[in-house]
Deep mutational scan, measured.
Amino acid sequence: MGSVRTNRYSIVSSEEDGMKLATMAVANGFGNGKSKVHTRQQCRSRFVKKDGHCNVQFINVGEKGQRYLADIFTTCVDIRWRWMLVIFCLAFVLSWLFFGCVFWLIALLHGDLDTDYKDDDDKSKVSKACVSEVNSFTAAFLFSIETQTTIGYGFRCVTDECPIAVFMVVFQSIVGCIIDAFIIGAVMAKMAKPKKRNETLVFSHNAVIAMRDGKLCLMWRVGNLRKSHLVEAHVRAQLLKSRITSEGEYIPLDQIDINVGFDSGIDRIFLVSPITIVHEIDEDSPLYDLSKQDIDNADFEIVVILEGMVEATAMTTQCRSSYLANEILWGHRYEPVLFEEKHYYKVDYSRFHKTYEVPNTPLCSARDLAEKKYILSNANSFCYENEVALTSKEEEEDSENGVPESTSTDSPPGIDLHNQASVPLEPRPLRRESEIGSRR
């Protein structure tokens, strides 16, 4: 089982795998120059863009038009607004034209077009017409509009002379109601789609790998820009990579689940303020055997998904993003964004995407760390350097704002901070800030 798991979770494809794949392509008759073999020097295209759209195009789909027309309502909801407006206008105009032609044909076959009612006051002739005051196609078209929109100006009306005319008036009224219901329903469904809710759900630009509770963890940050909550919010993550099976089958995008606390339930989050999602790199993680150097040379993509129900409509929305291997910062942490004021908490989104480097973060893999092949620094050293990194950030910001350097908390000259780390230190809580992250 261990060997199978290692093969499945191998992220960085070796040169031997690339040569094996190329040999397979030639042997199977696919070596026509169009096949692409992804190596370390040639990274694959992003499968999920940063804005959440999937970078996929469908080609050679059989009976595409028929399949889309069979699900016309979903098609109308998914198309762009400009095409929705075109369909909206065409549906009414074509129905008016169709029934206008029908009423014109009825008048033509009944002989109503030969009668001039402007110079004739004989009401008996008017009563013999199928539709009064309809003696041309324009008049028939206007009567069709008046019937379907129930305008009723009063000059044109159907008589009991022709039952077919009466039937067409009733039929057009029913068709008009159906068109109204369909168009209004599609427009309302399109307006109520929770897709735009994703514009106020954000992911951090970069993911980070750092120590948390004595273990290497992959972390990324999510935030909600609205005050309205995302009900039943939960997160998922998958690692996408290519691999070759033991039988020699090439899988271009193998999807591997990344555990973010599904078993323990901590994948469900209360997204009021930005939260750091934590994936513990343990023996079940696809990143277990990867060191910093392996991450730098790897070719994979981590897709992160945030799902929840919109509070206003109770409709489920899904926000997506992805991180390539070069977008994962090893040995970094996110800057705090949640600050405790006197009577409330304040979230500073200008710090949302910012990170700071944490010294002495192990550069080895989580496996080597678990097997004690890498000796961690003293816990006080880690905490102290973590505090120094934050303090230096604040000093830089104070210097930019014009604060005198004498007010900063610099260490005395001639003292090495790293050498001082081995000395037991008193706890130094942050002056006014605390970061709330997901705790395992």
Rank of each mutant, 00 (worst) to 15 (best):
M24N: 09
Y334D: 00
K125F: 15
F99H: 01
T115I: 04
N401E: 12
F171T: 04
F171R: 00
C383S: 14
N7I: 04
V126M: 11
A140M: 03
F339C: 12
R46W: 01
P412D: 15
L306G: 05
L230K: 04
G152N: 03
L376I: 07
V235P: 09
R236C: 05
M211V: 12
D263T: 06
F30S: 08
S264H: 09
A370Q: 09
D263W: 07
I151S: 07
H53R: 05
T391G: 13
E280P: 10
K292L: 02
P424A: 11
I183A: 13
D263K: 08
S124A: 08
I145E: 00
F88D: 11
Y153A: 06
S381Q: 11
N32T: 14
A233E: 03
S127H: 06
E247W: 07
I302S: 00
V126C: 05
T149K: 04
G185A: 15
Y349H: 13
R46G: 02
E232D: 05
I305D: 06
C76S: 13
E395V: 11
C157Y: 13
H343C: 10
N28M: 05
A129L: 13
F171W: 12
Y356D: 00
T150H: 11
C364P: 01
D180H: 14
V175C: 06
T23H: 10
K292Q: 11
E146Y: 02
G414P: 11
I302A: 01
P194V: 03
I277K: 00
E311L: 05
D294G: 09
S291M: 02
F98R: 00
I179Y: 13
T391R: 06
I145H: 05
A421I: 13
A379E: 08
E161V: 04
V337T: 11
H343W: 04
D294R: 09
V222C: 13
A237T: 00
P424W: 07
I174H: 01
L216Q: 02
R367E: 01
A139L: 02
L94Y: 02
M211N: 02
E341R: 05
S228M: 14
C130N: 03
I11D: 15
N360W: 09
Y349A: 11
E371F: 03
A25F: 06
V272D: 14
E307Q: 07
D122N: 03
R5Y: 06
D416N: 06
D368E: 05
F270E: 07
L417P: 12
S242D: 13
Y345N: 10
V310W: 09
L105S: 09
D122L: 02
R82P: 12
N378M: 07
H110T: 01
E433K: 12
H205N: 10
R212Y: 05
S13L: 07
P427I: 13
T74F: 04
Y384P: 07
L85R: 03
I266P: 11
R156T: 02
R243L: 05
I251W: 13
E405D: 11
S95H: 02
C162P: 02
R320W: 10
V12H: 12
F88L: 07
I415W: 07
M211E: 15
S434F: 09
S422I: 10
L97A: 03
S228H: 10
I209S: 01
V231I: 08
V4M: 04
G185Q: 07
C383A: 15
A233I: 09
R226A: 07
H205V: 07
E280G: 04
E311Q: 08
K342F: 05
A140S: 12
E397N: 10
K227W: 07
M191L: 11
L230D: 05
E301K: 00
I328E: 00
F203N: 01
A140W: 00
Y344H: 09
T316K: 06
C89D: 02
E133Y: 07
R221T: 01
S95N: 07
R367P: 00
E63C: 15
V93P: 01
I375M: 09
T138S: 09
H38I: 07
I179F: 09
A22I: 02
F73Q: 15
A207F: 02
Y117S: 00
H353S: 10
D282F: 03
S124W: 15
G65Y: 15
Q42N: 10
A312C: 11
D17T: 10
D299P: 09
S408L: 10
T159G: 01
I184N: 04
D116Q: 15
R367I: 00
N386R: 11
G2N: 05
I244Q: 12
L97I: 05
V231D: 08
V26I: 08
A366D: 01
A70Q: 11
L85N: 03
L363H: 11
V77M: 14
F167C: 14
S144H: 01
L218D: 01
A370V: 12
L142N: 02
K372C: 11
C157M: 13
N224H: 09
F30R: 15
S13Y: 07
V61R: 14
L216Y: 07
K193L: 10
T147V: 04
P404A: 08
L271T: 08
D299F: 05
N55Q: 13
Q66D: 05
N198A: 11
E15F: 04
S13P: 04
V388M: 06
C177M: 10
V222E: 00
A140T: 01
M211C: 13
V12D: 15
V12T: 15
M84G: 05
E400I: 07
G331E: 00
D114I: 13
F182N: 05
I178F: 12
L363D: 14
T159K: 01
D263L: 05
V12L: 02
I277L: 12
E435H: 06
V175K: 01
A207R: 00
L97N: 02
Y153N: 07
S411K: 10
S144N: 00
